[in-house]
Structures are given as C-alpha cells and as structure tokens.
Design a protein around this nucleic acid. Structure first.
Length: 122
DNA sequence: CATCTGACACTAT
DNA sequence: TATAGTGCCAGAT
C-alpha cells in the first residue's frame, strides 16, 4: 500500500481530512466520519485510518451514541483528553446533541442490511 | 481466492 | 437498556 506514492490515498486521506476538521471541543462518531468522507457504512475503515495515522485528533472520534469504544487504558486516556477540551460526559457517553461536530455529509446512501426490514410502499 | 479481524452501525428481540 | 445477529470495507495471512 505505498506511502507517499500512490494508493493509501482514496479512502484514508479523505477520512483523515474529515477527522482533522473536527474542531476542538467537539466530537464525531465513526459512522459520521465515514459518511462525511463519502463512505457510508465504512466506519471500520475510519478505525484503520486513525490507527495508521499519527497526528490526528483520534480522541474526538467516538462510537455510536457517543460511547467510547476503546478498551482499557486507551479509553481512559481518550476520556481524559476529551474532558481536557471541555467535553462533559453524561455517564459513559458524550451527549452528541451538544458536542457533535457538524460534518457536512457527502451524499451517498448505504445499502440497507437484509436484517433491516424495509418498509415497502403501499 | 478463502478466511479472519477490527477503537463500528443498525435492527430486532 | 442490553444482547445477538448481520452488514460493511480494506488489509493481513
């Protein structure tokens, strides 16, 4: 996957760009970042990007509902960093309604899982 | 090419 | 609210 060469680009750089524009004191979820980057449903790739890249405000990225998905001490550290930016936790989660960064979502739509019942037209 | 893995999301129960 | 099952995508083996 080259570095500075080719590849690696595409998804990752966009994801990185989105993460970078999360303002201090605000947060976003993996899914939101993925959507904003133009890859709905690629929340996992957001994780990849965060792990593979240095210098990103990784602590501002949370799981759905604003819950920290990082296990162990890393999770505590994330919580600590967020708190240092003025973010107040409500129990084990962050109220996204208050701290959710407004990332302009790219227009794309994710295919519904078959688990999801599609409401059919009547 | 087949399988597995991951700091996930979403729906149904 | 918690748990279980499924979908997603890219990379590693």
């Amino acid at each position: 996957m080259r570095v500075l060469g080719v590849s690696v680009v595409g998804m990752f750089s966009k994801i990185q760009a989105v993460v970078r524009k999360i303002p201090r004191g605000k947060v976003a979820t993996y899914g939101e970042v993925a959507r904003a980057a133009g890859f709905p449903g690629a929340a996992r790739q957001v994780v990849w990007a965060l792990r593979a890249t240095n210098g990103l405000p990784w602590h501002r990225v949370l799981g759905a509902k604003g819950r920290i998905r990082l296990p162990g001490e890393a999770g505590l550290e994330q919580r600590f960093r967020l708190r240092a930016e003025g973010i107040v936790f409500r129990g084990d989660r962050v109220p996204l309604e208050t701290y959710g960064a407004s990332l302009g979502r790219a227009h794309k739509r994710r295919k519904p899982g078959k688990n999801e019942k599609q409401k059919r037209p009547r």
